[in-house]
Computed example of a mutant assay.
Amino acid sequence: MSKPPPLDLTETLVSSRKVFDGNLLHVYQDQARLPDGKVRVREYITHPGAVVIIPLLDNGELVLERQHRYPLHQDFFELPAGKIDPGEDPPSCAQRELLEETGYTAESWRYLTTLHPCIGYSDEKLIYYLAQGLSFQGENLDEGEHLEVFTLSLPTALEWVKSGKITDNKSVSGLFWAEKVLRGEW
């Protein structure tokens, strides 16, 4: 007995309307035709995408940041990351962001994965890189950017995830990837 072909779950654009045009985010409200022929509203945010860097020092420690995040009005412990500028390729963005935010450059860059953190309401993608062979050049933060850079061992960072001290999704995902990669499992 053969398997039936997979269902076609495609939703087709009927009309689109931009309802908010911000500096970073753009919000759309579309009418989409569902596989059953009905038309429903789909609201979503477009985002330029971002890179996430897992910076690994020669001593095995990670370079992390503490940064205040306004929407939640609290400080978060995070991996360095930043949005991709128009026309910028992701590897160049990763190099730029690592230097700007932490003051480090890296000799070795390894693409790890691309993740989609908000598939229910955004097209944002996060592109992850492992950066090794770090050397400190000096911080070069963007205007209006304030953060504290520090180092932490991977086991301690994972314990911070377990205890709820690190809750930022991009960082949690990156730390889990780092664990697998550094163990040679991936």
Rank of each mutant, 00 (worst) to 15 (best):
Y44M: 05
G103A: 05
T167F: 08
P6D: 15
K162H: 08
V172F: 12
V161M: 07
D89N: 08
S163A: 13
P86K: 09
W109P: 13
V51E: 12
E148F: 03
A157G: 07
G37S: 12
G174W: 06
Q31M: 10
A106Q: 10
L24I: 12
E107D: 11
P55V: 01
C118H: 08
L158H: 14
L25E: 06
K162R: 11
L79M: 00
L13S: 02
L34E: 01
E43D: 09
L152N: 02
P80C: 12
L34I: 00
F176M: 13
V41I: 15
P55W: 05
T114C: 06
G133P: 12
E61H: 14
G49A: 11
D123C: 12
E97F: 08
G133M: 10
W109E: 07
G184Y: 03
H26R: 09
T12G: 00
V181S: 03
Q137C: 13
D21N: 14
E143D: 02
L147H: 01
E43Y: 05
F77G: 01
T113H: 03
G133K: 10
P90N: 00
S173F: 13
W186M: 14
H26D: 03
L98M: 08
P4V: 14
K170R: 12
E101Q: 06
D21Y: 10
D8Q: 04
G22M: 13
G164Q: 09
A94N: 04
F176Y: 13
Q132G: 07
E145M: 11
C118V: 09
E101N: 04
Q95D: 14
K162C: 10
D75C: 07
G22P: 14
S153N: 14
E145Q: 11
H26L: 03
Q29D: 01
L158N: 11
E139R: 06
L57T: 02
V51S: 08
V63K: 06
L115Q: 04
R17H: 12
L24P: 10
L57D: 02
D8F: 05
A32Q: 07
F20C: 04
S16Y: 05
K165S: 13
S163L: 08
F20Y: 05
P80Q: 06
